[in-house]
Nucleic acid binder design. Structure first.
Lengths: 189, 189
DNA sequence: ACTAAATGTTGATCTATGTCAACGTTTTTT
DNA sequence: AAAAAACGTTGACATAGATCAACATTTAGT
């Protein structure tokens, strides 16, 4: 059950199996149902999730009630409402599993404990941040000045899983286009 | 000349003045002119810049020759072409000082040396990454589904310096709207 | 397997904002 | 100080994509 997480860590560090074992034991398994909400808008986030199986969506709902999908995380990925996790302020976003999922959960306290205790784990966190930053950058810059067709092509190139795993509606709200437009654009590919 | 940087570090760590001194001495001063390009599109970036005075713009030019501004950094901020700095691949973006500026420059090697040698400096890097990530997130999510007026209002609220320090043209290209629209929107405020 | 609900598709409009061009103003360079 | 270049503003027009609505299809829960 901890196998994916162990692989994740051993692939990125030269920690001993023993240390990896110790680290992994800070994580607790949690099974969730489809569309189960993990973090609510006004929640302060004090958990980090590793996805064993399934998919987490990060999204918001604006004052008009329109949902915007911010991020999708799949198997072997870490995911949390990071700004809230870091600053301990209300998330202003939702976290939900859009499929029945198996998560490995670690508390914020334990997470930072590991970051401070194991330089290698610190490096993993650094890598998560660096990667998150780069991904966010790519997304902003990839979308600047793109029309609907170009956005979809960008998505297919950069996150091909996404269109296969999530509904058109969610993908559209991720791309910032309407479902109708996504539907029309797909025919032009 | 190193005062701003010293303040920056001492504000964020409990390092001794001696250590701060040592750290700061890895930085070299560089004066630049208005519109001087620091990093070119195909350059690999191996420097981190701290801004003593002035302003750095991060931007790209697409195949149609259109400039898109990605980021603006002002006094007491660290700035580099981070994806390239991290991965040592071509930047695919430009870095320029849009005003005559004074920068403190540290090489990538020295930077990571400090990160590894001083846990406190590691924390500073972590903070830069966390903050960069949060800023990027906010920008993506702030802009999702916003119209031109809302984007400008968002900018005024979240980065009020920006509209005061940079040209309308650059601000517009940062917001992803045309200069005409920005001009028209400003009258509605 | 059946029913209800959610999602996807498509056509007909509408609208925000881009583009282009002309002009005035500011900034930069020599 | 003059000339040139860049920038900002404004109007007329064009258009990508939003919205709305009707219908078809898929999915989920009992």
């Amino acid at each position: 059950m901890l196998q994916l997480l162990k692989n994740y860590i051993s692939k990125r560090t030269d920690l001993s199996q023993k240390d990896i074992e110790v680290i992994c034991n800070y994580f607790v398994s949690q099974k969730t149902s489809r569309n189960q909400v993990l973090i609510n808008y006004y929640d302060v986030c004090y958990q980090y999730f590793f996805i064993n199986k399934g998919c987490i969506r990060l999204y918001t709902i604006n004052k008009e009630g329109i949902e915007t999908s911010r991020y999708f995380a799949f198997e072997s990925m870490f995911c949390t409402a990071l700004p809230s996790f870091i600053d301990q302020k209300p998330a202003c976003e939702y976290l939900q599993t859009i499929e029945a999922s198996e998560l490995l959960v670690i508390s914020r306290d334990d997470f930072y404990k590991l970051v401070d205790r194991y330089p290698e784990f610190n490096n993993i966190y650094r890598e998560i941040l660096e990667l998150g930053f780069i991904t966010a950058q790519k997304r902003i810059y990839g979308f600047q000045g793109f029309d609907a067709l170009e956005k979809v092509q960008w998505l297919i190139k950069n996150q091909p899983n996404l269109l296969l795993r999530v509904s058109n509606k969610m993908a559209a709200s991720y791309l910032g286009i309407s479902p109708s437009t996504l539907s029309r654009v797909k025919k032009m590919l």
